[in-house]
């Protein structure tokens, strides 16, 4: 138990530090890298909670795919940070209001009344043969099958909408058609010409 608590505190400290650095660091690339670190340590914490499927999926999806694209975009943009910071004081009160609202909402949902030690029973420890993946699969495709499917359809709609909004058809650009390239035969391109040897003149 002692070692587990030690690991928890190490991960928690790194997580809080990384999350704080995401919004305080000046360089946007460093901010993204701190966010990656935050996700990674968060996955470590989830492993401690015996949620290995969620932990590995967090690394796979967020660290391995989403953040790579983030990093890709941030590196390409070459953002100049100083103009972004100009209105800091002006927007500060509004920022406080938003932060307070979010905090209040989260407190109402996740507060002591709903998630305190009395409200939730201590989860029992499972043995080594307990399969978190199988449990999640069973729950997702039985009890929560409709919310799950609806959520996936909404995501699909969002993907299609994003593609449809950014799609540009430019008929004037020159591009290659691989099907046509593969279909080309030798006879279409090469013409053999028979001709007599030239006589040496003079």
């Amino acid at each position: 138990m002692g070692f587990e608590r030690f690991v928890f505190y190490v991960f928690a400290v790194i997580l809080v530090y990384a999350a704080a650095r995401v919004i305080t660091v000046r360089n946007p690339v460093h901010a993204v890298l701190h966010l990656v670190l935050a996700f990674f340590t968060c996955a470590g914490l989830w492993l401690l909670l015996e949620a290995e499927f969620l932990a590995i999926t967090l690394v796979l999806v967020y660290v391995g795919a989403v953040m790579v694209l983030f990093l890709f975009v941030v590196m390409m943009l070459d953002i100049n940070v100083s103009p972004l910071r100009e209105g800091f004081v002006k927007y500060l009160p509004m920022g406080f209001v938003v932060a307070l609202l979010i905090f209040a909402e989260m407190f109402m949902v996740l507060g002591v009344k709903n998630f305190g030690a009395q409200a939730v029973a201590i989860p029992e420890r499972h043995g080594a043969d307990y399969s978190n993946t199988r449990e999640i699969g069973n729950v997702l495709y039985t009890d929560y099958v409709y919310p799950f499917e609806i959520a996936s359809v909404i995501l699909l709609v969002a993907i299609i909408a994003a593609i449809a909004l950014t799609m540009r058809r430019r008929p004037d650009t020159r591009s290659q058609d691989p099907v046509a390239q593969v279909a080309v035969r030798r006879e279409d391109r090469v013409r053999l010409v028979k001709m007599k040897t030239e006589e040496k003149s003079g």
Partner: peptide, 17 residues
């Protein structure tokens, strides 16, 4: 471990960093 295939997939996806 139970999800070893997933673990390997997650780790190989980190190599790009």
């Amino acid at each position: 471990i139970d999800a070893s295939l997933l673990y390997i997939l997650a780790l190989t996806s980190m190599g790009v960093y």
